[in-house]
């Protein structure tokens, strides 16, 4: 017998599992204790402060506050829509080979990014000093009649936002590989078709996270519109505090609403990001909801045999 190699497979003995003593993370315990101690101390300080916490629940769903929160939400959404639409246009103009459009875009961004948004709001508020009469040909009125607080806030916040959004969109467009444009052109698609069908959908992945950031900023920046008499959350809170004498308490109420709105939007953003991640990673991680459902299912399947017994 020349072939001495044993062809029979080795009996499958399960390998001995490693049972090692894990590394001790003493630092984590120490820092955890420090953090808890600090939180407790701050908590004690706040609870001993001369703040009448008991009025906060009373005003949380006050009619004026709820109306103010609603105004904050819709002015933010409208200003953001204006900002995104105008921002995309400005970004495309900025990247255009046409020197007129790219220069116009450059100056727009230069001005609206370079001056405080509060000043811009006040300028729109006083636009009647420059154009006392609005004459669109088919429509003519005094400017002071036209520029309601809502329109003033919308223009002031939206046009300012457009300058920031255009830079975000530009970064997104430039992040898409040039080969994509070439492939699209080689297929006979025009510049516009390439932008709409190929470039922007891919740029969205880069555009969305900072845009979410911008929107959350907008929810809070919209409080500046109280200077132009917009009845948003801060204005309403201030109005109430001037009669109820609960000044700081009303700001706490406003903060709770801001936190609520930003939390809701963070969740929305998470799902929008997933939508535009299509094709980029082989398997998307499950959403919290899917994870919960899966865990419940697993739990259920563990329990069932016991029930059967």
């Amino acid at each position: 017998m020349t072939d001495t190699v044993d062809k029979t497979p080795a009996p499958s003995v399960p390998p001995e599992q490693i049972k090692a003593i894990p590394v001790r993370h003493y630092g984590r315990w120490v820092s955890g204790v420090v953090v808890v101690a600090l939180v407790v101390l701050i908590g004690i300080a706040f609870s001993n402060a001369k703040i009448n916490y008991s009025v906060i629940p009373d005003y949380l769903f006050d009619q004026g506050i709820v109306a103010g929160a609603w105004t904050t939400l819709y002015i933010s959404v409208l200003a953001m829509v204006l900002g995104v639409v105008l921002g995309v246009i400005l970004a495309v103009m900025r990247l255009s080979s046409n020197p007129v459009t790219s220069t116009v875009s450059w100056f727009y961004i230069w001005f609206f990014r370079g001056t405080p948004v509060l000043v811009q709001l006040l300028l729109w508020y006083n636009i009647a000093l420059v154009f006392p009469i609005l004459n669109l040909g088919f429509y003519k009125d005094e400017m002071n009649q036209v520029m309601t607080p809502v329109l003033t806030a919308l223009l002031g916040l939206g046009l300012n936002e457009a300058a920031y959004m255009s830079e975000i969109v530009r970064a997104g467009i430039q992040s898409v590989d040039e080969g994509q444009t070439e492939a699209s052109h080689a297929l006979g698609m025009t510049q516009g078709q390439t932008l709409r069908r190929v470039i922007l959908p891919q740029a969205m992945r880069v555009i969305i996270p900072p845009t979410g950031n911008e929107f959350i900023n907008m929810l809070k920046t919209s409080s500046l519109a109280y200077a132009v008499q917009l009845p948003e959350l801060i204005k309403k809170a201030t109005d109430i505090s001037s009669t109820s004498l609960a000044v700081v308490e009303m700001y706490f109420v406003a903060c709770i609403w801001y936190l609520f709105l930003t939390t809701i939007f963070s969740i929305v953003q998470y799902y929008i990001e997933r939508r535009y991640a299509r094709g980029s990673s082989r398997n998307l991680p499950p959403t919290p909801l899917q994870r919960l459902r899966k865990n419940l299912a697993r739990w259920g399947s563990f329990r069932r045999p016991e029930v059967a017994r």
């Binding site: 080969g179 492939a183 052109h185 080689a186 006979g188 025009t190 094709g279 980029s280």
Partner: peptide, 26 residues
């Protein structure tokens, strides 16, 4: 014009070294 160039390219297929497929489409 851009549209006329695009029209010329319709009849010419091109395959790239790095594929350049559109990653957001199946």
């Amino acid at each position: 014009k851009e549209k006329e160039v695009a029209a010329q390219r319709r009849d010419i297929g091109m395959v790239f070294q790095r594929f350049n497929l559109f990653p957001h489409m199946t």
